[in-house]
Design a protein around this nucleic acid. Structure first.
Length: 669
DNA sequence: AGGACTGTAAACATAC
DNA sequence: AGTATGTTTACAGTCC
């Protein structure tokens, strides 16, 4: 109830400080304004953060962060150069920009300094990004190495000094000091491992499994300081120092993958990478020790295999058993450029998420501290994938909290009944439904995120239901299948079932766009796309509201910018469709994807109600597959023989077909 | 201020 | 009787 209002009130302030956005913000749509502020202030916020870090006493984490900011900065500059050569960055004429460049207008309208990584990724070509990335990674590696070298030297020096001094000291004191130094060394080493792991994830460092795991497994024991530089330098791998591996295309998957999972280091959300060790056809399954949530770890399982389908980003190929899956893995996801790129992207995703998680956790703690919440309260974010914090369901009046399984603790402080906390209804505004965040692309890009994170998706029930239906080849689902889609796609909908199921049913009945069709097996639900689009405002360009919404949507996307940036390349089948990836298509004026693009493109009367339907939306052709006549044929849908053959039953979601068929070069204004 | 939209809750009906 | 499904109404919150 008032939880979200509270979170929003609280959130609006810090969201401007963190350009990456707030994970907690995605739960409700009313973050439009706040989101825009966050985006606008993002560049400054990041820059100041980086600037504050660069005071000489930079920690490794800071250094890493700083390097990432540098990378972003370079990318921005690159983008700026590119944009300035084509159109003025300050030019807000969207059509001009969009026609001149194949750059999404909403992005083109923004200053590059405001761009989030995923926006830049959308703009820059993969080779450009690759080059930038590698350049920055190499730089980062060098600096990290220097940093660690210095640290090691310092420590070593101190140790020597202490040892010498210790000769004149009682043994006890010397022992204590040595102990302290050992602890310090241990910390250093752990730190190094962490960064080594990070770098490995980025493909910067490659170590042979034995060589890498050797020193690391001896971690808890006393270590010789001289081992550390060796480890760091990659001397464990003779003839292949780390710098070399940087130069080699940056990713050595065989070594990286194996060692990466052998680390016991940072828990959180790193997905296993062991699958890359299988290109040779070896059915060896490396089950990582961690990766708790979503993957079974039974011996007969594979982290990339679950629920009978391949979990490779954007794949979801059905495999009957593990053997078939392994086969599929080795054929479809062998060690090639594409897989490499996808893996690298995934590495960055994980890394960004970890960074983001740390930030958000810190922020949450600060918020809670500020609100005088019990500091001893168990932190929900201690769990890897339950990132959501602010998005809490109305606390448990109708829907009993799913006991301890519910990882989200409502943020509402018991004593806070202030004016900022509305005691009223539970309504949330889903900003993205209308303009800014097309569900299919948004969902596509954050597919894995919503699957695992207990975050309420920022979409309306109607749009979610529609998406569920449209994702099926037949474009029809039973209610139960819709339920299943919800629970499958969103961790959030794995609890409070009574509430959202009721809402689903309510929406199905309420909206005319959902058509119930009697089938032999029962009833299925289909989408009347035309009715759905009728709900949409007919005009979408030019208004400041639109810009705001778009920006907010983009800002929202920045919540998990890494995800978007990463998955945009490869993750979701939708995105691989030509209509999705071509910003220069008819949708270029609004980079909102087909979900929303379809709306204005629809040849609707401007008032949306005057004339009878002339064109049968292509969706109806799918209803041909329904065995019986619609129970309620109130609208007398003609299957539209003019539209000809039933849509090719493509396996993927068919929204790109919408785009093609419903948008014959339609202008949007 | 008011309408549209949305989410939530609930009552009720129907079918299995 | 219980459950799933479907319809409808009511109300509150948000946005325009």
């Amino acid at each position: 109830m008032m939880v979200e209002s509270a979170s929003e009130t609280i959130r609006s302030a810090p969201s401007g400080q963190n350009g990456v956005g707030s994970l907690s913000g995605q739960a409700d749509g009313s973050g439009g304004g706040a989101g825009a502020a966050g985006t606008a202030g993002g560049g400054a916020g990041r820059d100041t953060a980086a600037g504050a870090d660069s005071n000489g006493e930079m920690s490794p984490a800071d250094l890493l962060h700083f390097q990432q900011q540098q990378a972003l900065q370079v990318a921005r500059q690159f983008l700026l150069q590119q944009a300035s050569g084509l159109s003025s960055p300050g030019n807000n004429d969207s059509k001009q920009s969009a026609s001149a460049v194949q750059v999404p207008v909403s992005v083109a309208m923004m200053s590059p300094q405001m761009l989030t990584p995923q926006q830049m990724q959308q703009i820059l070509s993969p080779p450009q990004l690759q080059a930038l990335l590698q350049q920055q990674q190499a730089l980062m590696l060098q600096q990290l190495q220097e940093y660690y070298k210095k640290q090691q030297e310092q420590l070593h020096l101190q140790l020597l000094t202490q040892q010498q001094a210790g000769k004149q000291q009682p043994k006890e004191a010397l022992g204590n000091k040595q102990l302290a130094f050992q602890q310090q060394l241990l910390q250093m080493q752990q730190l190094q491992q962490q960064h080594l792991l990070n770098l490995q994830r980025q493909g910067l460092v490659s170590l042979q499994p034995s060589q890498a795991s050797g020193p690391l497994q001896t971690l808890p024991q006393a270590v010789c300081p001289t081992d550390l530089p060796q480890l760091w330098k990659g001397e464990g791998a003779p003839g292949q120092p780390a710098e070399d591996s940087v130069k080699q295309e940056g990713l050595d998957l065989t070594g990286t993958a194996t060692t990466a999972t052998s680390f016991a280091a940072p828990p959180k959300v790193s997905p296993p990478l062991s699958h890359h060790t299988l290109p040779n056809g070896q059915p060896t399954v490396l089950t990582p020790r961690r990766d708790s949530s979503s993957h079974e770890e039974t011996p007969g399982s594979h982290p990339l295999y679950g629920h009978g389908e391949c979990k490779w980003p954007g794949c979801e190929t059905l495999c009957e058993d593990l053997g078939q899956f392994i086969k599929h893995l080795n054929t479809e996801h062998a060690l090639d450029d594409r897989s490499t790129a996808q893996c690298r992207v995934q590495m960055q995703v994980v890394q960004q998420l970890e960074i983001q998680l740390a930030k958000e956790s810190e922020r949450l703690q600060a918020m809670m501290a500020h609100l005088h919440m019990r500091p001893s309260e168990p932190k929900p974010f201690s769990q890897p994938v339950t990132i959501s914090a602010a998005d809490s369901f109305p606390d448990g009046l109708v829907h009993p909290p799913t006991s301890a399984a519910a990882p989200v603790t409502p943020l509402r402080p018991p004593g806070l009944g202030s004016a900022s906390l509305h005691s009223g209804g539970p309504a949330r505004r889903r900003s993205s439904d209308k303009f800014c965040s097309p569900i299919s692309s948004e969902l596509a890009q954050n597919h894995e995120f919503y699957k695992n994170a207990d975050v309420r998706p920022p979409f309306t029930y109607a749009s979610l239901i529609r998406q569920a239906i449209l994702e099926t080849p037949d474009r029809q689902l039973t209610l139960n299948e819709i339920y299943n889609w919800f629970t499958r796609m969103f961790a959030y909908f794995r609890r409070n079932t009574a509430t959202w199921k009721n809402a689903v049913r309510h929406n199905l009945s309420l909206h005319k766009c959902f058509v119930r069709v009697e089938n032999v097996k029962g009833a299925v639900w289909t989408v009347d796309e035309r009715e759905y689009q009728k709900r949409r405002p007919p005009k979408m360009t030019g208004s400041p509201t639109l810009v705001k919404n778009m920006i907010s949507g983009l800002s929202y996307g920045a919540l998990n910018a890494s995800y978007q940036a990463a998955l945009a390349e490869s993750s979701f089948p939708l995105l691989n469709s030509p209509g999705m990836l071509n910003p220069g298509s008819a949708s270029s004026l609004l980079p909102l994807s087909h979900d929303d693009v379809g709306a204005p493109g629809e040849p609707l009367p401007s008032n949306g109600s005057s004339s009878p339907p002339r064109l049968s939306p292509p969706q109806y052709s799918h209803q041909v597959q329904v065995k019986e006549e619609p129970a309620e044929a109130e609208e007398d849908r003609r299957p539209g023989p003019a539209l000809g053959p039933p849509n090719p039953s493509t396996t993927g979601p068919a929204e790109d077909r919408d785009l093609e068929e419903e948008l014959p070069g339609e202008e949007l204004s």
